[in-house]
Design a protein around this nucleic acid. Structure first.
Length: 417
RNA sequence: GGAGGGGUGCCUGAGUGGUUAAAAGGGACGGGCUGUAAACCCGUUGACUAUGUCUACGUUGGUUCGAAUCCAACCCCCUCCA
């Protein structure tokens, strides 16, 4: 296929958003002809989305910026079923209360990336519980179920992988695909939605929705998937030891979010700049060519741009200042996580390992002690000599605080109160 | 419903009465080298008021001086048959 002509697909292709498309030529034509409504579904399995969902989110943003209408589908109904794609085990079943709370948390993320409203290009948010919850079993089976072939469903990766590995797959989960297909049909009828986008693991689900609409309504719908991002070391995007890289500030601070991007692997910098920032491509081309230590500058730009989108300019500046003070000058930045410790307690002295644990630099006292024994515990940048060391007020520095660290990257501030 | 196999730490997976807080690998974390990178080398990887105590091999009971290991019942999963 030649280069797409529509602004949206052209940018999406150049920036690395496109993995597969059902009919790129026809879709491109559609995009040049009219304002296209496209949707992506998000399941409400947690009260925040994490970096793993950022590719689809950025794609919706791009869609809106190129003059089209994004629809965010919240999976209030499908979350009750659980998507088996990419999962070895059945997900924990969530109740209505959890799902409602999760949707609220997730909504707040989207308002940062796309603008909602009633205009032609304003984003809309819908919840598939609105039409799924009320379905009547028998009539649904007769009207829609007969269009699904079990033979075909069994051949989809989401199902096949489970079966091949002899992992359990319940009938409940098996129906996820059917419901997602029905979602697409429903959105095409209600919102005039022509395109569903999603991660590459959603391909089967998307395609079967397209089939359903063709059979029932004789409409032509399109599917577009984004590549499943892995880092250069092969790990899935968005997971660290401390858990997922959340997009909600109350789950993960702007500083930690900034750090996540700052620690991007060299080989990922160019790719990530294209996907997660809105810098012009020629500028990115220049940045990703930087060699050796210079690539750190590109990483800082990546961190700044990505954090700005998620947490705003002020929080980004604070995170970036803190990072430069902490790492470049070996000092202490204001944005580091901090804990309060009563002055009286510090006068008596507190065990160093306990302080590390309280500052969340270690999960347990035992872990903190191991850290110290391994040479990774620091107070005011000096190694803690032994695991029974005591920290007292004499460690308070000129700024009236104590800096404690686990390794070279994780720091926290102890504030006497 | 019947027959067989299985459920072990973050994950994979060994262990089939005592030296088993449980092999090995992965992951993660820390140290070294660096650029807050990768690769590589070394170390750590249940908790605690810590030469000890407690918790842990699906659940609950039992046998035994002693159980992840043996027995019983139950729960769950897989395969085949109906």
């Amino acid at each position: 296929m030649d280069k797409p002509r529509s602004a949206f697909l052209q940018a999406a292709a150049e920036r690395g958003f496109i993995h597969q498309c059902t009919d790129l030529g026809a879709l491109d034509h559609l995009f040049t002809e009219e304002t296209v409504t496209a949707y992506i579904g998000f399941d409400a399995t947690a009260d925040s989305l994490h970096v793993g969902s950022l590719v689809p989110i950025m794609l919706l943003r791009l869609l809106q910026q190129t003059g089209h209408k994004p629809v965010v589908l919240m999976g209030g109904g499908t979350t009750k079923v659980g998507d088996p794609s990419g999962k070895d085990e059945q997900r924990r079943l969530l109740g209505d209360a959890d799902i409602t709370a999760n949707i609220r948390g997730i909504q707040s993320v989207f308002t940062k990336y796309v603008s909602f409203g009633d205009g032609a290009c304003d984003a809309a948010m819908v919840n598939n519980a609105d039409w799924l919850d009320g379905l009547a079993y028998i009539s649904f089976l007769r009207d829609y179920g007969r269009h699904f072939s079990i033979n075909r469903m069994l051949s989809f990766d989401s199902v096949k992988l489970r079966l091949d590995r002899e992992q359990p797959l319940s009938f409940l989960e098996f129906n996820y695909m059917v419901l997602q297909s029905y979602d697409f049909l429903e959105l095409s009828r209600r919102n005039g939605c022509r395109l569903q986008m999603g991660g590459s693991d959603q391909w089967g689900n998307i395609v079967s929705g397209i089939d359903l609409a063709r059979r029932l309504d004789q409409t032509t719908l399109f599917g577009l998937t984004t590549p499943l991002l892995t880092t250069a070391t092969g790990a899935k995007m968005g997971k660290t030891a401390d858990g997922a890289v959340w997009l909600n500030a109350d789950r993960l601070s702007a500083y930690d979010y900034w750090q996540y991007w700052r620690n991007t692997h060299d080989d990922d910098v160019g790719r990530f700049l294209k996907l997660f920032t809105e810098l012009p491509l020629d500028e990115i081309a220049h940045l990703e060519k930087l060699d050796g230590a210079e690539i750190n500058e590109a990483k800082k730009i990546l961190a700044n741009e990505a954090t700005k989108l998620c947490h705003g300019a002020d929080a980004t500046r604070a995170a970036s200042d803190t990072a430069s003070k902490t790492f470049d000058d070996g000092g202490i930045g204001n944005d580091l996580p901090s804990i309060d410790v009563p002055q009286a307690e510090l006068n008596d002295g507190v065990l160093a390992y306990e302080l590390l644990r309280r500052a969340n630099l270690a999960a347990s006292n035992g872990e903190a002690r191991r850290l110290i024994k391994g040479g990774g515990g620091r107070v005011n940048d000096a190694k803690i000599a032994n695991d029974k060391a005591i920290i007292n007020s004499s460690y308070i520095n000129a700024e009236g605080i104590i800096k404690i660290s686990a390794g070279k990257k994780k720091h926290a501030i102890v504030r006497p109160v």
